[in-house]
Each structure stands twice: as structure tokens, then as C-alpha cells.
Amino acid sequence: MFHQTPARSFTLAVVLAALVAYATFGGFFAREIVIEIAILAILAISLDFVAGFGGMVSLFHGAVMGLSAYGYSVLTAKFGIHPIPAAFAGIFLAASFGAAVAAIASRTSGIFFIMATLAFGQMLYTIIFKSRWLGGDDGMGGIPRFDASWIGLDFNDSLQFAIFAVFGIAVCYGIAALLLRSAFGRTMCGIHGNEPRMRALGVSTWKHKTAAFAISSAIAGVAGVFAAQHTQYISPELLFWTVSGEVLIVVILGGLGTLVGPVLGAAIFVLLKHEVGNYTDHWHIVVGLLLIVTVMAGGRGIYGQAEHWITGRSRKARESLNA
């Protein structure tokens, strides 16, 4: 069950404030990094929602994000539709795809579930890759950002767009946290804990899993809309399964089932990629070593491990006081 503890609120506030500060004082390149972190963090929140709390690990979240990005881009760049309804349409498209895949895949579980999501994600990748109308492997350009001049903002300015993306993390986190605290989230935890038991309690578990994936995919869709607006150019690479694999690494690195961990994980992952990437092309080795260390330490992830130490210590302190 998810608990929004003070430690989690504090960590989230610190990470978001650090991102805003980095974007404000760091110049253009820092802002690009912040936007990249924000997109990955939102995608990681969406994956943690189903994987960390529902126990449903997926390898198609990259494809879902890409689908939403393509939906937004086609509507705006090809049909000239206003960016805001286009964004909602992209998110809706992602949610529908996620729900449809989950409705089929959630009849299986474990490794078969993961493989089913991988297969559907790769199918989508192939369709878009082969589509001449969508630009094939050349991708699509000319994608507009939101026009926020009516509230005096200009999202073509890299700083304002970066802060907008950080705001996006906060909103997606809030929605995920509220849902996880609700009866819906409790039922999802129950399904994770013991699915036959939930059925005996009267829950149609596959419907619930499908709904959970629809919500998760909608959040991934938000990441897709940001991704399309960020580079204003998209290519099928966004849907390739390695993107889904990368976000799974981010979630595990940060702390599966902690919600704030994946946000922290996204920041660490992107920073490592750029900082280590300055010295060597083999930055994956560093991420790999870090991942091995976190997994060997108990698999709680960086945030989860810190939380484990702190609560362990405070419990010890209380016990020594009582003794």
C-alpha cells in the first residue's frame, strides 16, 4: 500500500526544486537535461504505478509514450489541430492502447505478461517504422509547443518550457499518489498480494488490471506529449523496446513501489548519462554497476534503501529509549 510519508514529500520537493534551480541557473544545455529528466520521470511514475504497486512489469511503456507523441504530432503538424485538444487526443490514444493490451495480456501473468507487452509494443514500433505517411524511420518534424501566451508565458523559451515540464512531474505524481491512496489503489495492492483471494472477494481482477493500465498509459501519454514538444521532432526510436527497458532500469534504480524513487532515479540516470558521457561513450557500464549494487543491496533501489536505513535507525533509537 502506498503511503505519502513526510520523507517522500520532502524528497520530491528537493528533487523538483533542484531541477528548477538547475534549469534557472544552468543555461541552455542544463534546461535540455531538465526536460529530458522530466519526461523520463513522468514515464517512470507511470511504470511504477502498475509495476511497483500492481506487480505488473511491462516492456511497452516506451511504445505507449511514442504512440501519444505520434498522436499529438499528427494532429498538430499534419492536420493543424490546436495543440491542447491534440494533447488530450494523444493521451486518450495511449490510454486506449494500454487498456486494450492489458485486457488481453492480463489473462497471463509473470514472464508471459512481460513478453505479451513487449510483443504489442514492438508491433506498434514496426507499424510506425514502416509507415511512409508517418515519415517511416525519418520521423516527423514541425511539431508545435503549447501556446501559453494567454497567461503571459512563452513555451518556446527553453527555461519556461523546462519549468513547465517539472510542473508536469508534480501533477503526474499527484494524480498517481491520489489514485494509489484511494480504494482503487488498495484493490490493486490486493491483486498484487493475492489475485485469487481478490476474485473471491468479488473483484473482477482483469477489469481492474485493465483500468490500472489505462491510467498508467495515460500518464505515459503525458510524457509522450512532452517528448514531442521538447524536440519538436519525433522518430520511431521513441517506441523501440529499449526505451521501455531503460525506464524499467530507472524505476528499479530509484526504488520500485516508492513513486518518488523513480523520479529520483530519472534524475540520476540522465545526469550520469551526460556527466559520464563527457568522458566515455561507455556510460552504460557505470549505470550497470550502480544497478548491480542496488539490486545486490536488497533491490530496494536508491530511495528505497535510504528509507530502509532511516526507518531502521529510528526504530532502533526508539527501542533503546524504551529499554
Binding site: 500500500m1 480504494a183 488498495r186 484493490t187 495492492c189 498484487h192 498480494g193 483471494r197 472477494l201 468479488g202
Partner: peptide
């Protein structure tokens, strides 16, 4: 018994009452 270990006692009860 199959109590949900990740949920509190109250949450275990509320979970079952929701669909009644």
C-alpha cells in the same frame, strides 16, 4: 486466511466492504 500483509487491518476490511 490470506490476509493482505501490505494493507492495514482497516484497509483489509474496507477492501472487502467496497464491493458489498
Amino acid at each position: 486466511r490470506d490476509i493482505f500483509g501490505a494493507l492495514s487491518v482497516r484497509e483489509n476490511l474496507e477492501l472487502a466492504g467496497r464491493l458489498a
